[in-house]
Design a protein around this nucleic acid. Structure first.
Length: 425
RNA sequence: GUGAGUGUAGCUCAGCUUGGUAGAGCGCUUGACUGUGGAUCAAGUGGUCGUGGGUUCAAAUCCCAUCACUCACCCCA
């Protein structure tokens, strides 16, 4: 067996690349319409950044990071998510002082050492936005609106936007104590996994999928009911603004983000057709993250979504994406003399940015026509001894089957006219 | 890290129960049609049966190990 891609990685093949181009260009367009600027950060960082930024008790940091020592003995890690790096870049380059609200977006590969399954890879693509500098619920609403607009514009149907509030330093500790007390009373009836969660991150007992646990947790205290005055007001305003924007959302007290840095607003978008991993986008507010990484206190809000999952969902939902026409003209040449002319001819056509390809294998005309058909060439130029003797070519429309012999002199003009008059099928 | 399923031609898969010379469809090449694709027909091309070991006169088939992939748990995008 020859060498394969490492577990959890894969090739994105020419036959599917148009989906990626479509999504990437749409992402760039919508993000920029909302005022975001692209930033690119390294694919590996000092391990310490993720330990402090993402949280040292999270699964991501505890067991999913690709961590290694470089030749200088530094501990480095492939990035498992985007936000920590963006915050680091903002602090390092003093970007936070440049604008009252700084809006950044990014796209790129992330790495997590997990067992792969449908919609989950060890190397996966994420795109996301981060907006720094304002705690205003207007900004939360705008970010959620952006997420919704983006996914809807890409053609995703059956989207479910779910929002929650996790509270802040003022109310979260008291709430967590109440939750712990409640769980403690029901510890014997919860599944074994939840007993573990109780010790490490009690919030996550709330989104256990075991029927037994769900029943018990229905009556558990929710963060929503224990918000302090400020958080309560903030969350109400976020909802108010979302209503104004006509974003279709639902309040879901079970939306609990897996990363430590979230405060107040948390949200997720779930799409159909993805199997078990159906959360396509997740985000929220992180008002303490910047200072915890050594910057001046700066509120932030953002989200990230998985491009792999998004594309899976688009395919599963049968979203029809036109494949751009890969070939305008295929030159079928019969004989070595004709091949020489074909090479020069293709050179000239390409200078006019006509997508041109030709035969290189010296096969029969029939075989060449088959290839022209297979690659969906719009026109075929036939070039053989007859045409060479007369300085002509035969130009064939591959859709209608009409063809005519024209002089090589008028070929370019005719072709440009035909290609421009009707757009690609 | 845990559990289940699957590895046979470039692709999709049959054959395995009950061991006996490696199969089909699609693709590709060629021809019918000596210079015309999308249809049909024919021929041809193509496989260390994931890998290693064991049982046997004989293993794709039975046994053991191992690797890979897939799905699910966990967790998340």
């Amino acid at each position: 067996m020859s060498i394969q891609t490492p577990k959890g990685t894969r090739d994105i093949l020419p036959s599917e690349i148009h989906l990626w181009h479509f999504v990437e260009s749409k992402v760039q367009e919508i993000f920029e319409v909302f005022g975001y600027h692209e930033i690119r950060t390294p694919i590996f960082e000092h391990t310490e950044l993720f330990v402090r930024g993402v949280g040292d008790t999270t699964d991501i940091v505890e067991k999913e990071m690709y961590t290694f020592a470089d030749k200088g003995g530094r501990s480095l890690s492939l990035r498992p998510e985007g936000t920590a790096s963006i915050v680091r870049a903002c602090i390092q380059n003093r970007l936070l002082d440049t604008l009252p609200v700084l809006k950044l977006y990014y796209t790129g590969q992330m790495f997590r050492y997990e067992r792969p399954q449908a919609g989950r890879y060890r190397e996966f693509w994420q795109a996301g936005v981060e907006a720094f500098g304002s705690a205003n619920p207007l900004l939360d609403a705008e970010v959620i609106d952006l997420a919704y607009e983006l996914l809807a514009d890409l053609g995703l149907k059956q989207l479910s936007v779910q929002i929650n509030s996790l509270g802040d330093d003022a109310c979260r500790p008291a709430y967590t104590r109440k939750l712990l007390e409640y769980i403690e009373r029901h510890l014997d009836d919860l599944c074994g996994k939840c007993v573990g969660r109780y010790e490490r991150n009690p919030l996550r007992v709330l989104d256990c999928k075991e029927a037994e646990c769900r029943t018990i947790m229905v009556d558990a205290p929710k963060s929503l009911d224990h918000l302090c005055e400020d958080c309560q007001q903030h969350f109400e305003q976020v909802q108010h603004f979302l209503n104004d924007l006509e974003v279709d959302y639902a309040v879901n007290p079970y939306v609990v983000r897996g990363l430590d840095y979230y405060t107040r607003t948390a949200f997720a978008v779930v799409a159909s057709g993805l199997g078990a991993q159906d959360e396509v986008l997740g985000g929220g507010r992180y008002d303490k993250l910047v200072e915890s990484l050594g910057g001046k206190p700066t509120p932030g809000v953002g989200f990230a979504f998985g491009l792999d999952r998004l594309i899976l969902a688009l395919e599963a939902q049968g979203v029809d994406l036109l494949e751009p026409h890969p070939c305008d003209v295929y030159i079928a040449a019969i004989g070595t003399e004709a091949e020489k002319v074909a090479l020069k001819l293709s050179h000239t056509l390409r200078q006019q940015r006509i997508k041109t390809d030709m035969e290189f294998a010296g096969r029969s005309l029939r075989a060449q026509m088959k290839t022209a058909n297979k690659i969906h060439a719009r026109y075929t130029i036939l070039l053989g001894d007859n045409e060479l003797a007369r300085n002509t070519v035969v130009l064939r429309n591959m859709q209608s089957g009409d063809q005519s012999e024209i002089s090589q002199m008028e070929l370019m003009e005719t072709l440009l006219e035909k290609l421009n008059c009707c757009s690609s099928p």
